[in-house]
């Protein structure tokens, strides 16, 4: 079974991170995944790097990752430009690290190499700290940002058994329902 991330998931994820109520009306991604207004502080390279990271961070059966991440990141950049700057800095560090070890940018590596690179720099052991070390900021602005986007969305919540995860305004019906067979 696959779990396709949808436009609804991206909007739901934005609702958990600061673009919620404006999420539908604010500049965001078109259906083809391109920026609607081009006024982003994140470059195409930054956005591609985040999609490449999500391929590592998300479970294998999650599909439509690239369009989900691009919608999410564009909304994020619009609503919290200071946060987008943190993302861009973290991507820069990620590429510097990968150039040093693999002589390629992070997004150019295979999925296995990306996973290896993140573990080599101990991103799996680092605390998530917005003003911390390079790896701690990578953990905060890239890894945890993408994990929050997924697990605060309906599809991401369903991956672990909850269709209305905290941060998602999923209404008042689900808490009353029993397990779905």
């Amino acid at each position: 079974m696959t779990h396709e991330l949808t436009r609804r998931d991206a909007i739901a994820a934005l609702s958990a991170v600061g673009a919620s109520l404006a999420g539908c009306a604010a500049p965001s991604a078109d259906d083809d995944g391109q920026s609607a207004d081009g006024d982003q502080s994140l470059s195409d390279h930054d956005r591609g790097t985040l999609s490449a990271a999500a391929e590592v961070l998300y479970p294998d059966d999650v599909t439509a990752v690239e369009s989900f991440v691009e919608r999410y990141i564009d909304g994020r950049a619009t609503d919290r430009p200071e946060h987008a700057a943190g993302i861009a800095d973290a991507v820069e560090y990620l590429d510097e690290y990968c150039q040093a070890w693999y002589e390629a940018d992070f997004a150019a590596l295979s999925v296995d190499e990306r996973d290896e690179a993140l573990r080599r720099m101990s991103a799996d052991e680092a605390d998530s700290v917005p003003d911390g070390s390079d790896v701690e900021r990578l953990r905060y602005y890239v890894i945890n940002d993408l994990l929050l986007a997924l697990y605060a969305s309906p599809t991401g919540g369903q991956l672990v058994g909850i269709e209305n995860p905290p941060g998602h305004p999923g209404g008042l019906a689900s808490y009353q329902r029993g397990p779905q067979s």
Partner: peptide, 26 residues
């Protein structure tokens, strides 16, 4: 644990993370 908090506090990612969060929550 909240599934979101579990996912962000675990340290890991990918399929392993999903399995651990699903085991933790529920």
């Amino acid at each position: 644990p909240s599934p979101v908090d579990a996912a962000l506090s675990d340290g890991g990612w990918g399929e392993d993370l999903r399995e651990r969060v699903a085991d933790t929550y529920g």
